[in-house]
Amino acid sequence: MALDALLTSAPQVASTLSRRGFLHMAGLGLLTAAAPAGVVRSAPAETWQARVAYSYGVKVRREPHLKGEELETLGHDALRTVQEVIVSEEPVHNRIWYRVGEAEYIHSGGLQPVATRFQMPLLSLPLNGALVDVSVPFTDMHTRPAFKASRTYRYYYSCTFWVGEIAEAEDGKIWYRIDDDRSHLSHWGLAEHFRPVPEHEMAPIAPELEPERKRLEVDLARQWVVAYQDDTPVFMSRASTGLTMGNGESMTPRGRHKVFYKRPSRHMAAGDSASDGYDLPGVPWCSYFTTTGVAFHGTYWHNDFGRPRSHGCINLPSEAARWVYRWTMPVVPAGEHLVKDNPGTRVVVT
């Protein structure tokens, strides 16, 4: 199947999407590619939610375009119900807008599609802990399993973490201890806000293929990633690669690489987060292909795929990053936190 065929066979946006379908399409970054300009997608009976992902907030406009009248600014982490999905004419790289009220529209780039799904707490843990993802828009972490304890971090929908301990508080609430893989400090959060990731969602995809039969191609100009088995494209996703440096080159290194280091969760941080730095716990589904730390990974701090945004990594919707994690080699053994120094799937960046 040619790449053009893969593009035209991408799942189409149905006239009425379920919340699960909406999250799936947003998670693959296909909403923009799947619909012609001007099409309005109706909201289903069940509600969709979106969280303001940008720290500086987002503009609510009267019309779904960048010159639409500004009505208000929503602050970081504000939640809104999505009533319709609009395919506008702009911006060109991401034409999706969400209607959140009567004549109230927000560009999707600054909104993370989220859900609220409370979980039954685990009663016990495997030897190496349990991998979980956040199943609510956000949850606040604490120094001890108590609401009155100092808050440490706020974790966001789709972030992944390893649970190291289960505790019951005096009020009967069950809490999980998350051991930070970067600082090695412990953070406690309500167990009902974390979903245990089932084994089938981490199982390798097409593991029977020899490593040389798989490759990932990253197109910096088009801002997309395509997976090939032999010469057949089997998966694609929009992406946000590295920003352009002063010399005109991308911060994502061009050339031929190999995935050699993978982990389902990583606390990524560098520099001063008040300026150009970042501090991002629980980055999901990381597949590294350079020794300087460039990786494919999930993204919860923006939803604006289709243009360069990163310090070099390949930002993907989290569902797409999980597919890449499962499909690429080397394989992380079940229950293990990572695999390293084991070159596997080829990566070609052009």
Rank of each mutant, 00 (worst) to 15 (best):
1 M>C: 12
18 S>G: 15
18 S>H: 09
18 S>F: 04
23 L>E: 09
24 H>G: 09
26 A>R: 01
31 L>P: 05
31 L>Y: 03
32 T>Q: 15
36 P>N: 13
36 P>Q: 15
37 A>D: 12
40 V>R: 13
43 A>L: 07
52 V>W: 05
52 V>Q: 08
53 A>S: 11
60 V>K: 04
62 R>W: 04
64 P>G: 09
70 E>C: 10
73 T>L: 10
74 L>M: 08
79 L>I: 14
85 V>Q: 09
85 V>H: 07
85 V>E: 06
87 V>K: 14
88 S>H: 01
93 H>A: 10
95 R>K: 15
97 W>A: 05
100 V>T: 05
101 G>P: 04
101 G>Y: 06
103 A>K: 07
114 V>Y: 05
115 A>V: 08
116 T>D: 14
118 F>P: 06
131 L>N: 08
144 R>H: 09
144 R>F: 13
150 S>L: 10
153 Y>A: 15
153 Y>V: 12
157 Y>P: 02
158 S>R: 15
164 G>I: 12
174 I>L: 02
177 R>D: 02
182 R>V: 05
191 A>I: 07
194 F>A: 12
200 H>T: 03
201 E>Y: 15
204 P>Y: 14
206 A>E: 10
209 L>H: 02
213 R>K: 10
217 E>D: 04
218 V>W: 00
228 Y>T: 10
232 T>I: 12
234 V>Q: 08
235 F>V: 00
238 R>F: 15
239 A>N: 01
242 G>H: 03
250 S>C: 07
258 K>R: 10
259 V>K: 07
259 V>I: 14
262 K>Y: 00
262 K>V: 05
263 R>M: 15
264 P>R: 11
266 R>C: 03
270 A>I: 13
272 D>G: 05
274 A>K: 09
277 G>T: 00
278 Y>M: 05
279 D>T: 06
280 L>A: 11
282 G>H: 04
287 S>G: 01
290 T>L: 08
295 A>N: 01
297 H>W: 08
302 H>W: 01
307 R>W: 06
313 C>H: 01
315 N>I: 09
319 E>T: 13
319 E>C: 07
320 A>I: 02
322 R>Y: 03
325 Y>A: 08
326 R>K: 11
329 M>H: 10
337 H>C: 13
347 V>A: 08
350 T>P: 07
